[in-house]
């Protein structure tokens, strides 16, 4: 038998088959807008997540009525709110909270939607039929209204509770998408081969089928991440989002429900609104690049 260095070989073959991450990076590098979006997004998130290092959190929540509604100044770059709290600090903290929650919702809904979609697509037939009937129904529900009712009826309302409620209404589309691709994929012989080799169904679903759908999942997750952040901030804006005391970008924007603040104290809400807009655009631009990368990969395979 030939003696050879297997580690070296393995590395060599990995090089020959560019990973999805590499294809994405190549796509982004060649698209100035996407590259700019990625850099900007990274900067925003770095500032938001590193903010606790240089911002005193307790000072941020301390109410000081002598200092309220101060327009931007050297002390408070973006002014202060009704309780005299620094808007910039809340903006950073809010970005961090909103992004974390959007990401959690995307991941939880993603895992659940993926599992349901894989099950429906892999088994097909009656299982698929029942699951799809249920999803069809769930998709027409006025989910925003129901989420709001849930939020007011949950007794011990926490951030985690909020994440679960929103996730519960965010997985339908994903399940449907995964299911339709899985249905096509399961007709291919490598799935039949795995069955004849005695591989258990759950292993086939997650270790054979799933890797072939992974780029689809990644594309969908990046695109829905933006939507989920929008949903959280929107709900918080309406007053049915994060529990009081947890600032979100939506909290700052919700000051704008008062016309006086919209017009005369714009520094409280406008930066948050613009920041959301910028973040959404950036995430979507990166998401589009990821989508193109996955399409390009499809053409190669």
């Amino acid at each position: 038998m030939v003696v050879f260095n297997e580690k070296e070989l393995m590395a060599k073959e990995k090089m020959n088959t560019p990973s999805f991450v590499k294809t994405i990076w190549r796509e982004i590098r060649n698209d100035k807008m996407a590259l700019g979006s990625l850099i900007l997004l990274t900067l925003i998130l770095l500032a938001a997540y590193l903010s606790p290092l240089f911002i005193d959190q307790t000072a941020l929540t301390r109410v000081n009525f002598f200092n309220n509604w101060k327009p931007p100044s050297a002390d408070n770059w973006l002014g202060t709110d009704d309780g005299g709290r620094d808007v910039l600090g809340q903006l950073l903290l809010g970005t961090r909270n909103s992004f974390t929650i959007g990401l959690s919702v995307t991941l939880i809904a993603g895992v659940f939607g993926l599992t349901v979609g894989l099950i429906a697509g892999f088994y097909g037939g009656i299982v698929d039929n029942i699951i799809m009937r249920i999803i069809d129904f769930l998709m027409v529900l006025p989910s925003l209204m129901i989420i709001i009712i849930f939020v007011v009826s949950v007794p011990k309302y926490t951030i985690f509770g909020f994440i679960l409620i929103v996730s519960a209404f965010a997985w339908f589309g994903k399940a449907r998408l995964i299911r339709s691709r899985a249905l096509a994929e399961r007709e291919l012989d490598y799935i039949n081969a795995s069955k004849t080799l005695g591989t258990p169904s759950w292993k086939i679903m997650f270790f054979e089928l799933f890797p072939n759908l992974s780029s689809l999942v990644i594309v969908n997750m990046t695109l829905t991440l933006a939507g989920n952040i929008g949903l959280e901030t929107g709900l918080t804006f309406l007053g049915f989002g994060l529990p009081a005391g947890t600032p979100s970008l939506g909290t700052l924007i919700s000051y704008a429900r008062n016309p006086d603040i919209v017009q005369n104290k714009w520094w409280v809400w406008l930066p948050a609104a613009l920041l959301i807009l910028v973040m959404m655009l950036c995430i979507n631009y990166v998401g589009q690049a990821v989508k193109r990368a996955s399409d390009a990969r499809q053409r190669l395979a």
Binding site: A226, G230, T233, G234, F237, L238, I253, A256, V262, Q263, W266, W269, L270, A273, I276, L277, M280, L281, I283, N284, Y285, Q288
Partner: peptide
């Protein structure tokens, strides 16, 4: 179209209100 897809409705409406009404 890309802007229309990415922009959350409530942020856009607020900005419209601020710009055109106020």
């Amino acid at each position: 179209n890309y802007f229309a897809f990415a922009t959350p409705l409530f942020v856009f409406s607020l900005l419209m209100l601020f710009l055109f009404s106020f």
